[in-house]
Design a protein around this nucleic acid. Structure first.
Length: 327
DNA sequence: CATCAGGGCCCTG
DNA sequence: CAGGGCCCTGAT
């Protein structure tokens, strides 16, 4: 299955994000684990995308500034694409990367906050984003479960190699996701052979739900948070931790925060209550704290702190954090 | 060499 | 609603 697909057609579109806009903090998230479907360097992000059965290569380039943002998007494809198709890609890209997000209220409310204020100032215009579809994110969420980062990386890579394709564009070769039908057509044992362990059952059942149109990301986007939450929890293999990530990253629910996993608990306790690693405060206390301080944008506020921390980690060693991130 | 926990979730009692 | 079991791996 590991065929190299050459994307020889190129189409260029300009996108004007809302200002202020921080290109690198939006297009690169140092806390995301490395994944074979994208690459980044300052001012550039390469990304594969499977859109309406078409394997695409995307290249985003920073052509503006914080206050006068401009992103040049190059779309690479196997063949000629209609203007309407390209418009659809641009619209979806605007959605996934939150390029038209209005941050003015968030900035206004919290730029004077003793802790969040300086972080907002430092990363002014940063957007949360997830580059993939709901189905793609679910695969990531599942391989994250109860595994070390290295193992999660290996599992996703094995899935790419077995069910995905490699796309060649702009001198890059990046893996592209598969359709859920590819796994609908396979067996749980085939998945287990890729050493995903008991997650095989979740991957299979989630893929089956999408292949049989029991899940529709686009209609789900129109529903209420509660309906979205219920629909996601209804999927086998999705629990409180995954649903939190999904509602924030895929459904853009900036205030949804109802579960904090143990390792996040340790980090937040250290950041907000200055506790020792082995003595974190209760998650209920943390949630109460976020509710008091960042009501309306609780998870977005957490995202700003989180990204700030992982950008720091990228540039300097943070010893207490290294202990918590077991590769 | 054996043991264990890891960026959860399901199922049972 | 607490707790055991689950696949596999790398660390100890």
């Amino acid at each position: 299955m590991d065929a190299l697909v050459s994307l020889d057609y190129k189409f260029v579109r300009n996108i004007e994000p809302t200002a202020p806009f921080n290109f690198d903090a939006t297009f690169h998230k140092p806390d995301h684990f490395p994944s074979g479907d994208n690459a980044w360097q300052p001012g550039c992000r390469w990304q594969s995308m499977l859109w309406q059965d078409q394997p695409l290569g995307l290249l985003f380039e920073d052509r503006g500034s914080v206050n006068s943002p401009l992103v040049q998007l190059s779309i690479f494809a196997q063949n000629e694409l209609a203007a309407s198709f390209l418009e659809g890609v641009v619209e979806e890209v605007n959605y996934r990367y939150n390029l038209q997000m209005d941050l003015s209220e968030f900035n206004h409310l919290f730029s004077g906050d003793p802790q969040l204020g300086s972080v907002i100032h430092k990363w002014l215009g940063m957007r949360p984003m997830h580059y993939g579809s709901l189905y793609e994110y679910l695969n990531v969420a599942i391989v994250l479960q109860n595994a070390t980062v290295r193992r999660s990386v290996n599992m996703l890579q094995a899935l790419f190699e077995h069910y995905g394709r490699r796309l060649a564009f702009d001198d890059k070769a990046l893996y592209c996701y598969w359709q859920p039908q590819a796994i609908y057509a396979t067996s749980e044992q085939d998945l287990r052979n890729l050493k995903v362990g008991y997650r095989a059952k979740s991957i299979k059942r989630v893929s089956d739900a999408f292949a049989q149109n029991e899940m529709n990301e686009f209609s789900l986007r129109e529903k209420s948070v509660d309906e979205q939450r219920r629909a996601l929890l209804n999927l086998y293999g999705v629990g409180p931790a995954s649903v939190g990530y999904l509602l924030f990253d895929v459904f853009h629910r900036w205030d949804y925060l109802s579960y904090i996993s143990p390792w996040e608990q340790t980090i937040y306790s250290r950041l907000f209550f200055n506790t020792q690693i082995d003595d974190p405060v209760a998650t209920a206390t943390l949630i109460e704290y976020f509710t008091q301080h960042y009501r309306g944008y609780r998870m977005l506020a957490v995202h700003y702190f989180w990204e700030d921390l992982f950008w720091k980690r990228k540039n300097e060693k943070i010893e207490w954090l290294e202990e918590l991130i077991r590769l």
